[in-house]
């Protein structure tokens, strides 16, 4: 039985690793997903999509009705900086990227689903990977 985190508590894990030895994963609630994946339900959706970190930016899209994602439609890196992170690996700034990034829409009335299912599932997938650091963005 995992320890339940009190809502007022703030979990904190120190970070002291050089970036050049760091593998990064990206998690976003900006509504990004692969065009080939089922779109989010704009009326409320607490689910997530796995976005391979080697995805072409042109294969990504945004389904989200609660913010103006014109910029993200033109350049997904404005909300989901997948190409910037790949560049940082290519030039040695970062060690690598987790093969799996994670996209959510974030707008949901089913908070319990996020707390009890989606968040622990994403955390477990990341725990089982070689990820050292997670970068997150909202919309």
């Amino acid at each position: 039985m995992p320890l339940e985190l009190a809502r007022r508590a703030i979990p904190y894990t120190p970070f002291d690793r050089p970036l050049s030895e760091t593998t990064v994963a990206l998690v976003s609630t900006a509504g990004v997903h692969l065009k080939s994946q089922e779109p989010f339900d704009v009326l409320g959706d607490g689910s997530y999509r796995i976005i391979p970190s080697d995805s072409n930016a042109s294969d990504l899209t945004i389904t989200h009705d609660h913010y103006d994602h014109t910029a993200g439609d033109q350049d997904v890196n404005a909300v989901f900086p997948i190409e910037r992170l790949r560049e940082m690996v290519a030039d040695g700034t970062l060690k690598g990227l987790n093969p799996e990034f994670f996209g959510m829409m974030g707008y949901t009335l089913k908070l319990k689903q996020v707390l009890d299912e989606t968040a622990p599932e994403i955390a477990k997938k990341i725990e089982r990977s070689s990820t050292d650091l997670v970068l997150l963005t909202g919309g």
């Binding site: 979990p11 974030g106 909202g138």
Partner: peptide, 24 residues
């Protein structure tokens, strides 16, 4: 709301011992 949801995920990741940082 998506800025709250992202923090729920962030907290779950941090709680299992992997550092996180959010651009908000």
């Amino acid at each position: 709301m998506c800025h709250r949801t992202v923090v729920h995920v962030q907290r779950a990741i941090e709680a299992i011992g992997i550092p996180t940082i959010l651009i908000t």
